[in-house]
């Protein structure tokens, strides 16, 4: 598996969006690309359809897997979604983006299939995750009482500036991160998939999942924190544990 680490800038700055690592899929002209693609699809351009499938198929599979029992069923659901997309192209009015529309169809079909199968799904998907309540970060890392209550007792140890490159260059780290993502409960996995992996704008993620932005960030942070813990273990040299 090849990773183009040239995409990674020297260090990750956290406050300015402009300084973020360049991610090709975060191109702000998604809407324009959609319009061009839609016009080609409606003209019967098979290449445009192949392009659409290539662009979204993996994310659709990931999303479907949160709702159904296994990968085989997920593939069936995604296949049905593509058929529904083809049949609905003529009626698609462009009130949402093409991507939002496609993911909406997928979620509807996956939920329906999941309910019909009585959700014979993995344990992680059943894990109860509320947007409030449970602590995001292990509370034992903070002082519980006294003058320093709520402040770090076990602060995170700094990672060096080359961390993204190191992680992406290590198959073990890549596998560990993928496993961490796959084991996320469905509500967390879907926000991380759409926002951080697919680069979908926050507003569009909320539209697709029908959640508020506040809920989005709560879930997104829970998801990122779980992946961060995996990376923390890896960086601390406990790679056998990840």
């Amino acid at each position: 598996m090849n990773v183009d680490t040239s995409l990674v800038t020297k260090s990750t700055h956290y406050l300015s969006g402009a300084d973020r690592i360049s991610v090709p899929c975060r191109i702000p002209t998604e809407g324009n690309r959609d319009n061009v693609l839609l016009a080609r699809l409606r003209q019967g351009d098979e290449g445009a359809f192949a392009e659409l499938v290539t662009r979204h198929h993996s994310a659709l599979i990931r999303m479907a897997m949160g709702h159904v029992a296994n990968r085989e069923v997920a593939e069936e659901v995604v296949q049905d979604t593509w058929i529904a997309v083809i049949e609905g192209l003529e009626r698609f009015e462009g009130r949402s983006s093409l991507r939002t529309w496609i993911f909406g169809i997928l979620i509807h079909k996956a939920k329906d299939r999941g309910v019909r199968e009585k959700r014979h799904v993995t344990f992680s998907s059943f894990e109860a995750v509320s947007d409030e309540g449970d602590e995001v970060i292990d509370p034992s890392r903070f002082h519980q009482t006294g003058e320093w209550a709520g402040h770090w007792a076990l602060p995170p140890q700094p990672w060096d500036d080359q961390t993204p490159e190191k992680l992406l260059a290590s198959q073990q780290a890549v596998n560990a991160m993928n496993r961490a993502i796959e084991s996320l409960p469905q509500t967390l996995r879907e926000v991380l998939t759409l926002r951080d992996i697919e680069g979908v704008e926050a507003k569009e993620v909320c539209e697709i999942l029908k959640i508020t932005e506040t809920n989005l960030y709560v879930r997104l942070h829970r998801a990122r924190e779980r992946v961060r813990q995996t990376v923390e273990t890896y960086m601390a040299g406990g790679s056998s544990a990840v």
């Binding site: 990773v3 995409l7 990750t12 973020r20 991610v23 993204p164 991160m177 951080d196 990122r224």
Partner: peptide, 8 residues
């Protein structure tokens, strides 16, 4: 870093 790395 996690946010940016999972995207890559």
């Amino acid at each position: 870093i996690v946010r940016d790395t999972v995207g890559l």
